[in-house]
């Protein structure tokens, strides 16, 4: 009967000497383990704005807002919805676009509207129909991956030239532009197919096919 109480006294005395086991967190800093999954921080430079992360996010915490008029795309990480699973980091196209911080975990706030971080990307639009083709950075990234083969695709290499300041994108062609030139426009896949059909078979055939 005596031993259990002695054990308790021993534990009590050690606790008295060592002090409380709990950390003094808000007053003293806390360092999480190196593997810790904290706040995902997007990298403005490395992110290409492809939006793959938004597709795989299980909590739908990544929002994509496309502004067609301004030709820009915003990617927003909502930390109030985020579950810190790290899927956006793991499945990022460039593998560097977003990184989970292993130090930033203290996100508590009284205003959840401030809980986000976002980046803005320039979009390349179709010159015929004003449809979104892809973010400029994604096309440049693809061009870099394709190396010399990038010049097989007009859209990709024109984006490359544009980036170097050699060529300029014309905002929009009229539909009445010379048909043959349609091959050398920056077009969305739908318009490219259409212009190809018109070139091959003429307007009338295409109209009937529609």
């Amino acid at each position: 009967m005596k031993y259990p109480k002695l054990r308790e006294i021993k534990e009590a005395v050690t606790a008295l000497i060592q002090g409380p086991y709990t950390t003094k967190f808000p007053f003293a800093p806390h360092t999480p383990a190196p593997n810790f999954r904290g706040k995902p921080i997007p990298d403005e430079k490395e992110c290409i704005g492809c939006g793959a992360c938004a597709l795989v996010c299980p909590a739908t915490a990544i929002e994509i807002i496309d502004d067609k008029a301004a030709a820009s795309r915003e990617l927003i990480w909502h930390y109030d919805l985020c579950i810190f699973c790290g899927q956006c980091e793991r499945l990022c196209t460039t593998e560097k676009g977003v990184k989970l911080s292993n130090t930033e975990f203290d996100l508590a706030t009284s205003d959840r509207k401030t809980l986000f971080s976002g980046i803005k990307k320039e979009l390349i639009m179709c010159q015929m129909c004003d449809e979104i083709i892809a973010p400029k950075d994604q096309i440049l990234w693809t061009a870099k991956k394709l190396e010399h083969m990038a010049f097989g695709n007009y859209m990709v290499f024109s984006a490359l030239l544009n980036n170097l300041g050699i060529a300029k994108f014309v905002s929009k062609f009229g539909v009445s532009a010379v048909k043959r030139l349609d091959f050398f426009k920056v077009l969305c896949p739908k318009c490219r197919r259409q212009s190809h059909l018109i070139d091959e078979y003429g307007d009338s055939h295409f109209e009937s096919a529609k």
């Binding site: 999480p32 383990a33 593997n35 810190f84 699973c85 790290g86 989970l100």
Partner: peptide, 23 residues
């Protein structure tokens, strides 16, 4: 603490994946 060291979180490990583990 061991959980955090291995998986990156105290709970909600995000380790299980069809066909293996994530980390």
């Amino acid at each position: 603490d061991i959980c955090e060291r291995i998986t990156g979180n105290r709970n909600h490990y995000a380790m299980f994946k069809i066909g293996g583990v994530r980390k």
